[in-house]
Design a protein around this nucleic acid. Sequence first.
DNA 1: ATTTAGCACTCAAACGAATGGAGTGCTAAC
DNA 2: GTTAGCACTCCATTCGTTTGAGTGCTAAAT
Lengths: 347, 347
Amino acid sequence: MLTERQKKILSAIIDDYIHTAEPVGSRTISKRRDIGFSSATIRNEMADLEELGYLEQPHTSAGRVPSQKGYRYYVDHLLNIDQHSPVDIMGIKYFFDQKFFEMEQVIQQTAVILSRLTNYTSIVLGPEVFQTRLNRIQIVPLSPHSAVAILITDTGRVENKTISVPEGISVNDIEKLVRIINHKLQGVRLTEMRTRIYTEINRELRQHLETYDQVMEMISRGFFDQSADRVYLKGTTNIMNQPEFRDVDKARHVLEWLERDDAVLRLFDSLDGDGNLQVRIGHELHEEAVNDCSVITATYHLDGQKLGVVGILGPTRMEYARVIRILEHFTRNLSYTLNRLYHGEGS
Amino acid sequence: MLTERQKKILSAIIDDYIHTAEPVGSRTISKRRDIGFSSATIRNEMADLEELGYLEQPHTSAGRVPSQKGYRYYVDHLLNIDQHSPVDIMGIKYFFDQKFFEMEQVIQQTAVILSRLTNYTSIVLGPEVFQTRLNRIQIVPLSPHSAVAILITDTGRVENKTISVPEGISVNDIEKLVRIINHKLQGVRLTEMRTRIYTEINRELRQHLETYDQVMEMISRGFFDQSADRVYLKGTTNIMNQPEFRDVDKARHVLEWLERDDAVLRLFDSLDGDGNLQVRIGHELHEEAVNDCSVITATYHLDGQKLGVVGILGPTRMEYARVIRILEHFTRNLSYTLNRLYHGEGS
DNA sequence: ATTTAGCACTCAAACGAATGGAGTGCTAAC
DNA sequence: GTTAGCACTCCATTCGTTTGAGTGCTAAAT
C-alpha cells in the first residue's frame, strides 16, 4: 500500500511523462505547485517507488519512467476522469449532430472521428454477426452456375457470398431450401443456426431435397467458414507520431500487427465480460508486437444488448484519462444514436 | 536518341541500383561481364547521361542514381520481361490451384498474395459497381422505422444499406416501388439507373405511390451518395523495408496517403484507357505524397469486359520487370478464374 | 578519334575525444 | 523526517579527423 505522498508523486511523475515522453527528474516534480517537498525528498521517494516496481530508470543518471505496473496503478487508483475537455465534448457533439441514415456508415465514421479526436489508432468492431439473430436468407441466381446468397440479421447487418452452384443442383432446390430455412429459423441466433440446421430441420429438409447434402455443403461453406466480422481501423499512422515509435522497426512491428485482422479480432475476443470500459496495458495484451502499447476498449449497445466494441490503441504512455473520458461519452452517444436509427426518430 | 552503349550502361546502372539502393560508381559497372570498357569510359558516358537527364548525382563525390526520366526510359525501352522467375510462377499457380467459392474472397486473397509475392504494397479494386448492371433490388424490413435495402448486380456484387424509413411511409409503399424498379430496370447499367428512374418510370411510379418523393429520396440517398467501391490494401508496411523509406516521416507520408481511400481511388480513376498494363513513375502519379513511389497497374476482366484493377505500389526504385511479369501472368489467371467461377466449372 | 591509366580533388560517413549537463545517491546538517 | 550540498555517472552533443569511394581532367596509348 502506498502512502498518500507516494501516490501524489507517482501521479505527478506519470502525468509529466505522459506529456513530455522524457524521463522525469526529481527537480521537475519538486517544482510543481501541488508538491511541497524538495528534490532530495522526492529522490528518496522515487528510489522507494522504483524498488516497489512502479518506476524504472533507463540508466543511472537519467530520470524515472513509469513501469507497466506503474501505469496499472495509475489507471486503477490515481485517475481523475471528471473534468471533460470542452474541445472533445464539442467534437463528439458535432459528430452526432449529423444526420445518419445507415448503421454501417455510423460505424465507419466512428472509427474516423475517434482516431481524429484522440490522435491514436482507433479500432472499431462492427455489430457482431453471431450475437444477432436471423431475419432472412435470400438467394439470387446470377447465372446457371452461380448465385449470391444474402443473409440478413435482425440488426440490419447484411452478409453476402457469391457462391458457385455445383453441377446437378437446380435453382429450384435452393429456393426450396431457403424457404424452409426462413420459415423455421427466423429469429434464431446465428451462433445456433448451424446446429439447428443439422438437427432440428434435418429430416424435413431431406424429405424435400434429393440433393440435400450438396446444397447444405454449399450453404455452410458460404456462411460459416470465415467468421470475420468487419474491423475498421483508422489513424494507424498516428503511432508514428509518438516519440517512442520514431524508430522505423518499432513502428513497423505495430503496423504489421494491425494489418492482420485476425490478430486484432483475437485481441477483442479476449475481452473480459464484465465492465463496459476496459484498459489493457502492454503485456496484459499478450501480444508480443504491441508490448509497448495499451488498448482501451468500450462497448456499444442496441436495446441493451452488446452490439460491438470500439477501442483506442496508443503507446503505454497514453493519455489514459482523456481517452477514457472520450470513449465513455462517445459510446453513450453512439448507443443512443443507433437505437434511434433502428427504432425511428421518435423513441 | 541514345547510342547502344549508352543504353547498355544506363540499363546496367539502373539494374544495379534497383538491387543495391546505393549510388552506382563507374568501377562497379566496368567490372560487369557484359560491359567491356574501363571505368574512365563509363565515367564519360555517365557524365553525358547525367547531362541528358537520365541520371543524377546525390553529391559530387558519389556515384550516380537514376532520375525519374531515367526510370521512364528504362521501363519503355530497356526492360526485359521475358524470363519469368520459377518461384513467382509457382506462387501464382499455387494460388489459383485453390478451390474458390466466391468472388469477393478471390479479390481479397488477391491483395494478400500479390503483396506477398512482390514484397510491395498491393492495391486491389473490386469489381466496379457502376460498370455493372442491375440484377435486382430487394428491401427487407427490420423494424417499423428501418429496413435494409439490397442491390444486386449481374456480377454478383451486393451493396446494402440500412435505411431509416421516414414517418408516413409504409412498408407497402416501398415494396410497390421495389417491384416496379425490378420490373422496369433489370439489366440496366447502374450508371444509367438514376436518370432512368427520374425520367422513364417517373410517371408510372407517381401513379402508384402517394409518398413518391419521400421514398425516392430515401432510395437515392441509400445507393447513389457514395460511389465508394471497395479498395483492398495489403502489405502497406512493406514500404518500410525499403531503405529509402527508413525515415519515419517519409514512410508516414506514404502510409497516411494510403489510408485515405479516396486518394487511392482518385489515382485509379486517372488510369489511361488504353493498354492492360500501366506503369506510372513518381511525379507521373500527380500525388505529392507518393512522389518517390511508382505504381504498376493491370486490369482484370469478366466476359471480356473490364471488371477491376490490381496495382502494386513500391519505391521508384522498384523491380519493374519482375512486378510486370507477375502482374501480367496473375491477371490473366485471375480473369480466367473469375470467368470459371461465374459461368461454372465447365466453361 | 577513342579509350584508358593516372592523379589530384571532393565530400559524406564513420570515428573518437572532449565537453556539458541533467540527474542521481549519499552524507551531514537542520 | 527533511533538505542542502557535493561528488559521481553517463548520455547526448559537438567538433575536428580520418577514411574511402568516387569523380573530373589530362596525357598517354591504341
